[in-house]
Design a protein around this nucleic acid. Structure first.
Lengths: 261, 261
DNA sequence: AGGGTCTTAATTGTCAGACAATTAATTGTA
DNA sequence: TACAATTAATTGTCTGACAATTAAGACCCT
């Protein structure tokens, strides 16, 4: 990882340098890739300290600003953290679930908002994934998960809750369901997906009568979870998906009938 | 997004600047956050051109290297792309499925490798998610998906296939299954998860007799998909999970009995 | 000897100014 | 009109410098 990268024209030495695939890529990108490779390959382990910026610039044969740009790229992906001071430097970060989770939500949210994923596709994906962890969740749920579900149901019944708050509570409810599966990988993947879809969900408004329908289904889900009745949880999720899709179709039709802004 | 950011000591004007949450954060991080906010909020739409680096440094009241570090952070997340030349500059990127997919795999792979997720947890998550899309996949599968599955089965039967190649083919097979659900969001979430687990899967070796067991199950899955028999696909996936877990337990036991290196 | 304070060195963060490389638009010319 | 040369704008990179931060070591006092 500490070899000089390919320089297009200024090469004066004759040592064999490992040219990166894209010779046209920025030096900072090449250096970032080299360090990233060293991290993912295990050459640099967690909490290992990278050479100082001055050393890196000497080793790669580039200036310090270029090295810094590379380090900032890695910092943006949470692969490293930097610390000032005498014993400071750049250290390999342990990628925590929380951090990965945050990044995944950011990426997914952007992806959905930039690619005009229609509501039905997102909704189908969300409930499909949730149904998948229902059996595990029903079996393994603990008192804490049931408590979270009930507290969210209570919140959803507050009459002067805004639409987006209702939506957020809905997300929290379903996140409790996913967490009940007691599998961190599932939580990471599914809860991230559910949360990323919140902006889409926010596009439809939840009027009072529909809220009651959803709350009733949430109650049935909580009950079934308490009785560890997986099949019933799945059936309720099916109903919830149908209701949500019907609601969205109604909202879309209403929006289409209005004059364009 | 183009207001000067908070500077700790050099403030001479009296305009109310919107101080970022973390006053201690780097300027480049603050600027990156400001631009990122402008993108996610829709203030900067896809393919919009950001002000030039010189303009940005003037607007934010920082030097050009600092602005550049901020832009590199955003480039690392594929939020922007840069172009040299007269009409060049930084442009808001459309985050494609392929790019998001790539990022998700990188993140997930790092997460799993750095946090010692045990094989059983990863395996359970993977098959749980796959079972979820089996009903949709069985209903919607097209000739192309069946063809991909069959071709991967053929590949898996090659006798001199290395373990990691067998594993890669296994991933490709399951990816075809996920894609057959014809839901890009599902493909993005699930296929990413499956692919991220490949390094973990690679830890266990697939000896000949076990390969035959897995291939037989793959064949049964392909058949069931052809007949659009969703229940049977799910049942086969159950069996596949049991087989894989039994295999991993055997591999772990064998490894434990060997002298430590 | 112990403890607190000061100095010092290492390192990242930021700046200024400069030049090279790239690319599209403009201008000039046949 | 078509093609070539020039020009201007912009990013990529370098050099050198200084500020801010932090831990370790030196020093002094009790």
């Amino acid at each position: 990882m500490t070899r000089p990268v390919a320089r297009p024209e200024t090469r004066t030495d004759t040592r064999p340098v490992t040219r990166r695939q894209k010779t046209s890529a920025d030096l900072s990108a090449q250096i970032a890739a080299a360090i990233r490779d060293a991290i993912v390959s295990g050459e640099l382990i967690v909490d290992a300290r990278l050479p100082s910026e001055a050393e890196l610039s000497a080793q790669f044969g580039v200036s310090r600003p270029t090295v810094r740009e590379a380090l900032k790229r890695l910092a943006a992906q949470s692969l490293i953290r930097t610390q000032r001071g005498a014993t400071g430097g750049a250290f390999v970060n342990r990628l925590s679930y929380a951090e990965a989770y945050r990044q995944q939500i950011t990426t997914s949210t952007l992806l959905l908002s930039m690619n005009e994923v229609d509501f039905e596709t997102a909704c189908e994906a969300r409930y499909t994934m949730e149904r998948a962890c229902a059996p595990l969740a029903a079996t393994r749920r603990e008192a804490e998960h049931l408590a979270r579900m009930h507290s969210e149901i209570a919140r959803q019944q507050e009459p002067d809750l805004t639409d987006s708050d209702f939506c957020a509570s809905d997300v929290a409810f379903h996140r409790a369901l996913v967490d009940a599966a007691m599998n961190p990988v599932l939580s990471y993947q599914l809860a991230g997906a559910v949360e990323a879809m919140q902006p889409l969900m926010n596009m439809i408004t939840f009027k009072a009568p529909y809220r009651e329908t959803l709350i009733a289904l949430h109650m049935r889900i909580a009950d079934a979870m308490e009785r560890q009745d997986a099949n019933r949880v799945v059936a309720c999720l099916d109903d919830l998906q149908s209701e949500t899709m019907a609601l969205s179709r109604k909202a879309m039709a209403q929006r289409a009938s209005l004059p364009r802004t």
